[in-house]
């Protein structure tokens, strides 16, 4: 599984690299020690930075969801800019080869960003532990508000770790081809 994970992460290297950058930047903002800063590496932390776990609720939340938020916005924009123009507006290589390639690249970028959406399991478990098990967790209202996204992030991190997100990305594209082409 580790090999498959690393292969997919390298195939979708733009998202992997930018995810690493956002994590690194978040660590800098939060003054979290970053032990190993290579973004593209041949292990399970590919696309992430090895850093100390956050100790407060806010920093744990930001570490777990901040980079994912940036990746989601960029990924959705890239993905749908490509999908709308190729699958719906019907741009084909016969209309304009450069434009078709441009939109196809946007779809690739979108998939690569969306496949690097979630943090390492440790990051979301840290927030989970602080918020829902720890004594110094956030207020009840913040717990309730953050719970759905925390749950999605936890499930997403599990999926990403086990390469399920790659499978979902492929299914997503195939469904669009079947539906819209």
């Amino acid at each position: 599984m580790r090999l498959v994970y690393v292969i997919f992460k390298f195939i979708l290297f733009p998202g992997t690299y930018i995810r690493g950058f956002w994590e690194h930047l978040t660590c800098k903002i939060l003054h979290l020690p970053v032990e190993s800063e290579g973004y593209l590496r041949a292990d399970e932390a590919c696309g992430h930075v090895e850093h100390a776990l956050a100790t407060t609720g806010w920093s744990a939340w930001l570490m777990a969801t901040g980079p994912g938020f940036m990746m989601f916005n960029a990924g959705m924009s890239f993905l749908y800019a490509g999908i709308l123009n190729i699958f719906y507006m019907g741009i084909t290589p016969y209309d304009s080869l450069p434009m078709f390639i441009f939109y196809a690249v946007l779809i690739y970028l979108g998939v690569s960003f969306m496949c690097s959406l979630f943090p390492l399991t440790e990051d979301i478990l840290t927030y989970w532990d602080i918020a829902f098990h720890g004594k110094k967790g956030p207020s009840f209202i913040l717990k309730v508000i953050s719970f759905p996204l925390a749950l999605v992030t936890r499930i997403g991190a599990f999926c990403e770790k086990n390469c399920i997100n790659f499978l979902l990305a492929i299914i997503f594209i195939v469904l669009h081809i079947v539906f819209a082409l």
Partner: peptide, 24 residues
């Protein structure tokens, strides 16, 4: 570890991604 620097190229990549996503 706290003083680890983000390289110039990485900032450039992040900025390109940000502006690219805005264009998209």
């Amino acid at each position: 570890y706290v003083k680890t620097r983000i390289g110039f190229f990485r900032y450039v990549a992040g900025a390109v991604a940000l502006f690219g996503s805005f264009f998209a």
